[in-house]
Design a protein around this nucleic acid. Structure first.
Lengths: 293, 293
DNA sequence: GCATTTTATGAAACATTGTTTCATATACCT
DNA sequence: AGGTATATGAAACAATGTTTCATAAAATGC
């Protein structure tokens, strides 16, 4: 609906030379359309008002007025999502600035994660996990937190999972994985030597490997059979792998939800069964609301 | 800048009766301004074009044209953030639908977290943590993952932290906390009995308590001295406390960044010191890029 | 309480801006 | 070369926004 500028770019083959010229000018600075009258714009693009109207018609609008309405709308929307520019934290930032910048950085990271996600790859991953005898989870540091989160989620779906905290146990764990199983490796950098080691072992056993890592060439992405990408941007103060960690969790959410949705009724039933009863609780009725922890 | 409708509401005392009447109509359905010409709108509001122009002038615009531009802009912005409506996952959803819905749910949750965050409360919390002798972290289930994440972050800033996985250890941990320390309790529901128990113990010792919990009346929010709120919306398939968990992590990010920013140089130095050296690594040069895990 | 000033209001004149028409120029085809 | 199709901008036209102004109503002064 509101893709006037996109249409302007895409449908340029329908335009005459003059129209194309006008379109170029507009695409270069769309704000002109909002600020100028049709005659002004005609002058500015060395053409005529009628040519502009014809351009609008070819782009799918009844006239300049309608076109302008669409462009105004579009620019406003674009402005709204202009927070996309990564803003560094500076020394002079107020607490409110920090709140805004960090929140937006995380939001952008989620938007990027969404764009990086390939439904076909997800399909394969969901099937692999669904049919796996056992899910082997791997991660270290902040990525271990994400792996633990995945562990909790898969447990809720009655999937068999293994996770270990330290590297030595993870190596042993990797040795046990077989063809019928699936390994899920979470690594922000894609270079963690411990993870690479575990993956090599699993490859020897022909265990299919899903990696959740950043979208770049790295040992981890080379060793994995299926890749789910996290954002790769991190700012100076967040070298503790911050945005990527939220990105990882979102991917896990998506995997979990997709899995759960594959067998709707069965999941619902299973979910209610795994709702933990608190000590002293009779029948599942808890303090207002039903969630836990 | 773009608050035409707000001004219309606020400055109504400056208006005459006719103008107020027009303003009411516009506020009731602002889209009218975008769709109608000034004469049409005059007819629709049983007034005249000149009255509308006068209204625009009183609202701070040079005329109807400028006013309409502002309203169009404002409505577009408003529409952009309308994705706020929580969309449930349905059985017929494609994988792409799931990707979009989950991502957006998480984004909305971050937006809400930002809105719920009070800079004054954050100020107090940052000061408490900065001056604390020891930080005691508490959480269970998914909230324990968030607590572990906080632990990793605070460690990087050379803050003394304690965290324990099981409830019994957490109780012991709570007993050790004193006036000079700070307790950080993470609980999605705000009702987890184990957390409540820990908080009661800390209250006895007059340990200041920061709680990261959902914005509702709950035992946890009553027992805490300082509250940082997470989103409270969860959908059916996400009873594993999903969005709130991302919300929790964002709050931790903000706390961490704010803390780090308080002493810029010191943090930078500290950060580079805590960059872990990998086995076999000579001087910190790693595979392309500098991050870990 | 009446006269005067101020304020409020809409019709109409006016100015601006968008749309359509049409004559002309150019390219293309036969 | 002649004819047709297409492209283009000037100008007429239509619509839409702005200003003026006469009138009516309210407020103020005496």
């Amino acid at each position: 609906m509101s893709n006037a500028l996109l249409k302007l770019r895409e449908q340029s083959r329908l335009f005459s030379t003059t129209e194309r010229e006008i379109a170029m000018h507009i695409l270069e600075n769309p704000q002109l359309v909002v600020d100028m009258s049709i005659h002004e714009l005609a002058k500015h693009t060395f053409s005529s008002a009628s040519s502009i109207v014809r351009l609008c018609n070819h782009t799918g609008y009844s006239g300049y007025k309608e076109f302008r309405k669409a462009v105004t709308h579009e620019l406003a929307m674009r402005e709204q999502s202009k927070r996309t520019e990564q803003k560094e934290i500076t020394r002079s930032d107020s607490l409110q600035d920090i709140i805004d910048k960090i929140s937006y950085a995380n939001i952008v990271s989620l938007e990027e994660t969404r764009e990086l996600m390939d439904a076909a790859v997800l399909r394969t991953c969901v099937d692999l996990i669904k049919n796996a005898r056992m899910i082997y989870l791997f991660g270290l540091g902040a990525s271990l937190c994400a792996a633990r989160d995945a562990y909790l989620k898969f447990l809720r779906l009655n999937k068999l999972c293994v996770i270990n905290d330290d590297w030595h146990s993870q190596i042993l764990q990797a040795r046990n994985a077989g063809t019928q199983d699936v390994g899920i490796v979470i690594s922000y950098s894609g270079a963690t030597v411990e993870m690479v080691e575990c993956m090599k072992i699993m490859r020897e056993n022909n265990t299919p490997i899903i990696a959740i890592t950043r979208c770049e060439n790295s040992p981890v992405s080379e060793l994995a059979d299926h890749l789910l990408y996290t954002t790769s941007r991190e700012s100076i103060f967040r070298s503790g792998a911050t945005s990527s960690r939220i990105s990882q969790l979102c991917i896990i959410d998506i995997l979990y939800t997709a899995l759960a949705n594959e067998d709707y009724e069965a999941s619902l039933e299973q979910l209610s069964r795994t709702h933990i009863r608190k000590p002293g609780q009779i029948s599942g009725k808890m303090y207002k609301g039903s969630s836990q922890f």
